[in-house]
Amino acid sequence: MKQIAVISGKGGTGKSTLVASLSQIVNNKMTADCDVDAPNLHLLLEEKDQQKWDYSGAKEARINYDLCIKCGICKDVCRFGAITEDIVINNLKCEGCNACVVACPQDAMYLEEVNTGWTSVSTTENGTFAHALLDTGAEGSGKLVTEVRKKIVPFENGEEWLIIDGSPGIGCSVIASITGTDAVIAVTEPTKSGLSDLKRVLDLAKHFSIPAFVCINKFDLNMDITNEMEKYCVEKGFMVVGKIPFDPLIVKALQEYKTPVDTGDQEFIDEINSLWNKVTEYLSQ
């Protein structure tokens, strides 16, 4: 099974719409929503036989107040400001780093694993699907991405592809989204920020030696930048595999919980098919 991660330098470029559409068009695949900051694919899917697992992505410091003498050493050593004047842990700030545990002269502190979200695998009409959700404000999203990918793999039943909706940005969660994948599709739009974001995300793929392809969404909004993007890709050896026009019908479809594939937007469907063919052709060489 080959793994393809769809990523974008920033959010809102149409990455999830592209993944949702791909998962309708591509046969013989599983889909993993690894955009743990904004996991959205499940909104368009009807999930059956959902299996859920608690996820403990972090440790947090705890205080045994029977032993605590409120000397304040823990507060002084904590570099995250996670211990208040009254020696109470602020769980939104605690990194679980262990410094207070090491420093406490009373052995009154310890680390505890905390549940910070969950992962799940389910059956949908578009095949096996995995996603996750972190609790509000919880940390550790890169590890959660790894968990989602790990959870779906044992469900493989002869599928040829695993399509991963990756996290946006260039930080820990996107790194976890693309490590060990066979290819990356970077979705971008022709805005002033789009080009710099695209460069950063392509740098990242290159850094990890993963073949990267580019899809320019809403390409006709600004032809100057689209041309500049294409020129950049040619120079750097990245293939532009798809260009999708600005189309209010796509947003309209989404407002009705549908993809452009559901609404039968033929121009869009053709473009996605051609994009997928280019990627798979490259990978089969």
Binding site: S16, N40, L92, T136, L254
Partner: peptide, 20 residues
């Protein structure tokens, strides 16, 4: 923005600022 994606993510942001 007025899409199901937007609403879903808005709800997460609302929970966060309420928690804070």
């Amino acid at each position: 923005e007025p899409t199901p994606f937007g609403l879903h993510d808005l709800n997460i942001a609302v929970e966060l600022v309420k928690k804070l």
